[in-house]
Design a protein around this nucleic acid. Structure first.
Lengths: 183, 183
DNA sequence: GCCAGAAACGGAGTCAGCCTCCTCTTTAAC
DNA sequence: GTTAAAGAGGAGGCTGACTCCGTTTCTGGC
């Protein structure tokens, strides 16, 4: 009597891939609130199949972002060796905020998602390490934790996304970074 | 031949009032994305009537917020006489951000609305006056304009609204205010 | 190779909300 | 009282979320 589960079926794996690819395309074209039916269609799959693989929109979103989130974690690890801890944090936060605008409207979905997806825990840990290193070096404001920074970053990503003028976006971002007393 | 338009009908005025009252209730209970059908029902009015009075959700939102927005403008005018321009700006911005959380989810709707509603022009002018006064007194960072502040405020309002811990909300708000170099 | 049944598929169906359109009713003006 | 303009209202069309279940497709065991 085998307690082992069967291996995942080949068609299931294929559909999973196709759904991810289609979701990435459609989210990119139409934003994070794109129609799930359209994603299923693009993947050449029934809507029921989409829901079996990804029970919620958020789970599909997280799955499509998985790769870039891991890249963000790696980036943070690499930056732990940078000369200036303050500068390292600054650079990474810019990437972090940019990531939150991968799809139009993504920033609005992220906050709830941050608490549920386990991958986000990794990102949080990575960011915390960078922040604490900067704080230890006296290159970042000491009276805040990474959750504070994450909340503000979400706000900046959200507020910034609709702003047309690049100069203003830059200034607002700078405003935020300055508030951390970096360097 | 009268070029004059007829006076607004009494039933129309009544329905307008009832819609505003109902909208305020329902938005308060269910957030800024509440069902418009429910608002019409609460007002004892057909859905078509709601749409004649308020062609878009945003127009209804602005209408329900009209009073508090005007109050915000008055508050700013009053604060122009305060001793400390920096402190005045700070106090007003807190009220401004708080206003953006009048209904759950309001912060998400506000940015597009800010550019279309004429009442928001008044608020912007009021805020600009406070900011420039603080800048002239050397009590606020000089390299930004009110739009920058407004964008950041929208971000703070958005990011802050889902945060449970009051202490963190307070810290994030302080982070933002500090970035303006007030006082 | 073939077969049994587990796993997965798919889309019809249900529901909710948005918004429009058109007929019927109410009202102000005379 | 009459009239015509203004307004009311809800049926209906549309889109998208999500479920449910009959049908199809794999795969491991033989």
């Amino acid at each position: 009597m085998s307690e082992l589960h069967r291996a995942t079926r080949a068609d299931a794996r294929r559909n999973h891939e196709q759904l991810l690819a289609a979701a990435n395309q459609v989210f990119t074209e139409h934003g994070a609130d794109a129609s799930l039916g359209q994603i299923a269609k693009r993947a050449g799959v029934g809507i029921g199949t989409l829901y079996r693989h990804f029970p919620t929109r958020d789970s599909l979103l997280v799955a499509t972002l998985q790769g870039s989130l891991l890249a963000l974690v790696d980036y943070a690890r690499a930056l732990l060796d940078a000369k200036s801890p303050g500068e390292a944090l600054k650079v990474w936060l810019k990437a972090y905020i940019k990531h939150a605008t991968t799809y139009r409207g993504l920033a609005v979905c992220l906050p709830p998602l941050t608490n549920s997806a386990s991958i986000c825990e990794l990102v949080k840990n990575a960011g915390t390490a960078l922040l604490e290193r900067a704080q230890a070096a006296g290159e970042a404001r000491a009276d805040i934790d990474f959750d504070d920074v994450a909340v503000m970053s979400a706000g900046v990503a959200f507020a910034t996304q609709e702003v047309k003028e690049a100069a203003r976006r830059k200034r607002v971002l700078a405003l935020f970074l300055d508030s951390l007393d970096l360097r």
